[in-house]
């Protein structure tokens, strides 16, 4: 049962790499957007809100197909990136990371937004009377107090990213060693005779990864509450 083959390891490690890169790139963007949504009112705010949560409700195939149209080699953005910056997403692991980052973005942003909203604005006011410019207030008060929520969002986003299937397979296909993540590998194994044991091994691995992510996320959330009470 635990004899995980090299091919299966490749899928597991690729998933971890894709999930990690997707989360690390999405986090600063997520923090910026969460802060905008938590602290500001602007024209079109509810539209931005809706667009962020769209991947959660759209069929993943639709998101993947839209990514293919936009970021594929002949896509508007993808063509430009390939010609000018040499960045190619189509049928590469980077494309898988892009798809996973977008699909997990709602889960990443939500805890960050909630934790920024929970930061007492009176503390931010106190910081400004103590001489902190708005950027310093954000860096020295808002961000540290929201940090456990940010980490919780990253963990949730990461867990979602490594499990992503529909958008990824639509956008970058199912290429072993390049774009075949755990989910795609399990799907492939269920399509071949005698694939069950291998599929179950990967199922066990993904259950373990997801459980660890949830436990870690829960711990960070608890820590956030304590931190806001100065314990």
């Amino acid at each position: 049962m635990l004899n995980i083959s090299p091919a299966e390891w490749t899928a597991v490690l690729l998933s971890l790499k894709v999930g990690l890169v997707a989360t690390l790139v999405a986090t600063p963007i997520g923090i910026a957007i969460a802060w905008l949504l938590a602290r500001h009112h602007f024209w079109g705010k509810s539209l931005v809100d809706a667009v962020i949560y769209l991947p959660l409700v759209l069929p993943p195939v639709v998101t993947g197909y839209l990514l293919l149209l936009t970021f594929g080699r002949k896509g508007l953005v993808g063509g430009w990136l390939a010609d000018h910056l040499g960045i190619v997403f189509a049928f590469r692991w980077t494309g898988a990371a892009l798809a996973c980052g977008i699909m997990s973005f709602p889960l990443l942003v939500r805890p960050i937004r909630l934790s920024i909203e929970a930061v007492d604005r009176r503390l931010e006011q106190a910081a400004s009377t103590l001489g902190a410019a708005p950027s310093k207030v954000f860096l020295t008060v808002t961000l540290p107090l929201a940090l456990p929520g940010i980490l919780a969002g990253m963990v949730l986003g990461f867990a979602k990213a490594i499990g992503e299937f529909g958008a990824t397979i639509t956008f970058v296909s199912n290429i072993p060693g390049e774009t075949q993540t755990i989910s795609a590998a399990i799907y492939t194994l269920t399509q071949v005779p005698d694939g069950d044991m291998a599929a179950l091994r990967l199922v066990a691995v993904s259950i373990v990864i997801s459980l660890v992510a949830l436990v870690v996320s829960e711990w960070f959330t608890r820590r956030a509450t304590q931190r806001l009470h100065g314990i």
Binding site: D120, R122, L123, Q125, A126, A127, S128, T129, L130, G131, A132, A133, P134, K136, V137, T140, V141, P144, L145, R227, L228, H229, G230
Partner: peptide, 28 residues
């Protein structure tokens, strides 16, 4: 406010919970 250099002691103190007393003292 951050350019006024006016110390403000609030009724509810508003100490920063993520910092120690020493770090709070030196924040301003």
């Amino acid at each position: 406010p951050h350019r006024r250099r006016i110390g403000y002691v609030f009724q509810d103190a508003r100490l920063f919970p993520h910092l120690t007393v020493m770090q709070n003292l030196h924040y301003g």
